[in-house]
Structure formats: structure tokens, C-alpha cells
């Protein structure tokens, strides 16, 4: 069984973090989350990290792997060489709580403000006649609220008031399928210097998204919609 070398960012707020190397034996079919969990179980019980579902559904295990935002649970070890080092650091642009753990509540509170429909129509069956007794099929939104896009976004680094890619994408989803929601409020939320206009199209959100959300395109659609609304108001409301 191959031995993998992991370099984990360790430490607690108040002291400067350090990188520590661990060696862990696991088959190449295992995932990074298995390696980190095994280090916690067998080598260092003080290691802090977030995880829950282990299949990219809960969004808890986002970290930076060799600098890039990934979910540990769907990062296979076979991507790496046992001779190399896998460096794991916490997400950026979140308050750091220690080791690989960050506080995601600022993002969650922003998402809660949007209050978007968490359930969406299932595209597989949206246009298919369903047998009697089967209701319209629904499924969860693509966004798992993992925060990878916030960590990857360079604008988040400079503007802490920026709504961020996940939130803007959520607003766009809500506008696309409002189900009686208050669209005017959402447009106001997005039409803000720290909202849709703050994005500088670095495209890293879409590049790191593990769940097909494509926030960059969503922000583009949101802007188009805001422009149309403004034009309509400008033409219609002209005195």
C-alpha cells in the first residue's frame, strides 16, 4: 500500500500557523478526506477539520490543496504521487478557527438573506408527462454552499462587503425560478456596489466550483437582467 505525504496547516488563532508533515498509508483508490481522517484517528487527535457527507453533497470539507480550492471528499489520492507532498490549507476569506477549520457563518448568513428556493424542478422530468399519482419531481439546488468560490475569488480578498459568487448565483437562481418570491428585493440586493457590479470576472469561482453552479455565468445573467430593468425604468419612468 502506498504511503502519502501530507503537509497540513496547523495552529490556532493568536499564534502563527505552521506546516506539519504527516505520512499516511492508504490505497490509491482512497480520497484526501480519508487521509486526513486517518491522520486524526491514528496520529493526532487535536487536528481540526470539517467534514460530513464524504460525497460532495454537504459542502463541509472545502480546503486548499496545493493552493487550489477543492473538496477533500472528491479529491482522489491517485491524482498525486506518493513521492510528492500534498499541501492542505484552510479556505481563504473566512475567519480562521484553527488547523483546516474556518467559520462559514458569514457566508451562510448572506445566503440566508437571499432565502432562495432550495428545491428546484428536476430537469430530467420537467417536460415529461408523469403518471397519475406522481407529483412534480424536485431536487436540491446545485449549490452545496461549500465556500470554495469565495475562497478562490480575488475580489473577496479586497472587499469584505462583497456579496460573493455563491450568494449572487443564488440570487440569480431565485430570479430564474421565483415561485412567488420577492424578486424586487433580490434585484435591490444584487444592484449594489458590493453586489453584482463588484465582480471583476476573474472566473475562478466557476473554475473551482465542484457542483456545476457556474457562478460567473450566473453573475453575467444577473447583470444583464439588472441592465434591462434599469433601461425599462429609465425609458418608462422618464418625466
Amino acid at each position: 500500500m502506498p504511503t502519502w505525504q501530507l503537509r497540513l496547516l496547523r495552529g490556532r488563532p493568536g499564534s502563527s500557523p505552521r506546516l506539519e508533515t504527516y505520512r499516511v498509508e492508504l490505497p490509491a483508490e482512497a480520497y484526501l478526506i480519508d487521509a486526513v481522517e486517518k491522520i486524526w484517528a491514528e496520529q493526532d487527535r487535536s487536528l481540526l477539520f470539517r467534514h460530513a457527507c464524504h460525497h460532495a453533497s454537504c459542502g463541509a470539507c472545502g480546503v486548499r490543496v496545493n493552493g487550489r480550492e477543492r473538496l477533500m471528499c472528491i479529491t482522489p489520492l491517485r491524482e498525486f504521487s506518493p513521492d510528492g507532498v500534498i499541501q492542505v490549507e484552510p479556505l481563504r476569506h473566512f475567519p480562521w478557527l484553527g488547523d483546516l477549520l474556518v467559520d462559514v457563518s458569514p457566508m451562510m448568513r448572506r445566503m440566508a438573506e437571499v432565502g432562495f428556493a432550495i428545491i428546484r424542478r428536476d430537469e430530467l422530468t420537467a417536460d415529461r408527462p408523469l403518471p397519475e399519482g406522481i407529483e412534480q419531481i424536485t431536487r436540491f439546488e446545485d449549490c452545496i454552499e461549500c465556500g470554495l468560490c469565495l475562497s478562490a475569488c480575488p475580489v473577496m480578498a479586497a472587499d469584505e462587503a462583497y456579496l460573493g459568487p455563491a450568494t449572487l448565483a443564488a440570487i440569480e437562481r431565485m430570479l430564474a425560478e421565483p415561485r412567488g418570491g420577492d424578486t424586487a428585493r433580490l434585484l435591490t440586493l444584487a444592484d449594489d456596489p458590493h453586489g453584482a457590479w463588484r465582480c471583476h470576472s476573474a472566473m475562478e469561482c466557476t473554475a473551482v466550483c465542484p457542483s456545476n453552479v457556474d457562478p460567473a455565468s450566473a453573475i453575467g445573467r444577473l447583470r444583464r437582467r439588472l441592465i434591462v430593468e434599469k433601461l425599462r425604468r429609465w425609458i418608462g419612468g422618464g418625466r
Binding site: R64, N66, G67, R68, E69, R92, H93, F94, P95, P106, A152, P154, V155, M156, A157, A158, E160, H200, S201, A202, M203, E204, T206, A207
Partner: peptide, 28 residues
């Protein structure tokens, strides 16, 4: 988001580790 001095935040957008074309384009 908090307790980050302003000068340090600049290093956030200059830091290219892990970034791809989009991040590089933004930085340039």
C-alpha cells in the same frame, strides 16, 4: 473576513497559488 489588516488583504489578490488563467488575467 475579519481581523485582516488592509495591507494583507492586497496579498490575497496578488497571490497566484492555485489560480488559473482567469486569476492570472485578473492580476495582469
Amino acid at each position: 473576513m475579519r481581523e485582516v489588516p488592509r495591507w494583507k488583504r492586497a496579498s490575497g489578490w496578488i497571490d497566484l497559488r492555485g489560480r488559473r488563467e482567469g486569476g492570472l488575467a485578473f492580476l495582469l
